[in-house]
């Protein structure tokens, strides 16, 4: 066995440890309160701080407060799609059964958060730019991301055989991941109306700490909330799949009797 094959096999066995639905349900049940309650606390703290106590911007006035919703939504829109692409990879390479279910559940939540990002961006753009929408590279690439989410949701349910739907959606998720660096670097590659990033991994933030702290808290809270909703939906999906298999085995037993 070559080094790359053994790496694939080792990684596959690591992922398959968590492919067991019963094990996932136990893990999900334990994880759920640790995601839900901190999500609620940090979101309320971050948004409350941003809305009532953080200072207004000297140029944007109070409309800067929209940032405390818009920025977490924008980051989660991209991260959610990256998670979808990872699920696609796990599904195509290792045939991980939970990856397919996770992709089904992440898609609608990701589409909602991307719609929220676009809507709050428009609500900020109208008073600041004087328009709801421009065909700017950043805005257009995020709109493409929203359509990718819708395409994924439609494709995964488009086949009578669910396995074919999972496979097609996984390919779309992987191909659509090309949009993620375009979104990230659009403000550098093109001359856009959208401002460049205020927070980067490599440089110091170009934002006052009085705004950075509430933004960090709302980012943390909304991210935990996203994870809590996905875990709850995934737990429900696993239970629904067990219900379906129990019902079909009961039906088979009734037919044989």
């Amino acid at each position: 066995m070559s080094a790359s094959q053994s790496f694939v096999a080792r990684t596959g066995s690591l992922f398959h440890r968590y492919a067991n639905p019963g094990r996932f349900l136990r893990l999900g049940t334990r994880l759920q309160p640790w995601l839900t309650w901190p999500a609620l606390f940090f979101t309320l703290a971050g948004l409350g701080w941003g809305l009532f106590y953080a200072p207004a911007d000297w140029q944007q006035g109070d409309s800067v407060r929209i940032m405390y919703v818009h920025v977490p939504a924008a980051i989660l829109a991209s991260s959610g799609y990256a998670a979808l692409a990872v699920c696609g990879l796990l599904s195509l390479v290792w045939r991980h059964p939970l990856a397919d279910l996770a992709a089904v559940e992440i898609g609608p939540v990701g589409a909602c958060i991307t719609a929220l990002c676009l809507a709050t961006g428009s609500l900020w753009g109208k008073p600041m730019w004087g328009t709801w929408w421009v065909w700017d590279a950043r805005l257009t690439s995020v709109l493409v991301l929203f359509f990718l989410y819708l395409g994924h949701i439609a494709l995964i349910r488009a086949f009578d055989d669910p396995q074919r739907g999972y496979r097609a959606a996984a390919i779309l998720a992987l191909a659509g991941a090309v949009d993620l660096p375009i979104i990230k670097f659009s403000v550098q590659w093109w001359n856009t109306l959208h401002q460049p990033d205020s927070i980067t991994l490599t440089g110091a933030p170009t934002m006052s700490s009085s705004m950075l702290w509430p933004l960090g808290l709302s980012m943390l809270g909304i991210s935990l909330g996203f994870a809590a909703i996905v875990v709850a939906r995934l737990r429900a999906a696993v239970m629904e799949s067990r219900v379906r298999s129990l019902l079909s085995s009961t039906r088979r037993r009734g037919e044989n009797a």
Binding site: L47, L51, D62, S63, R65, I66, V69, H70, L116, A119, T120, L123, W124, K126, P127
Partner: peptide
Amino acid sequence: YILASYGL
């Protein structure tokens, strides 16, 4: 605009 964003 702010209320609409937070409300949404």
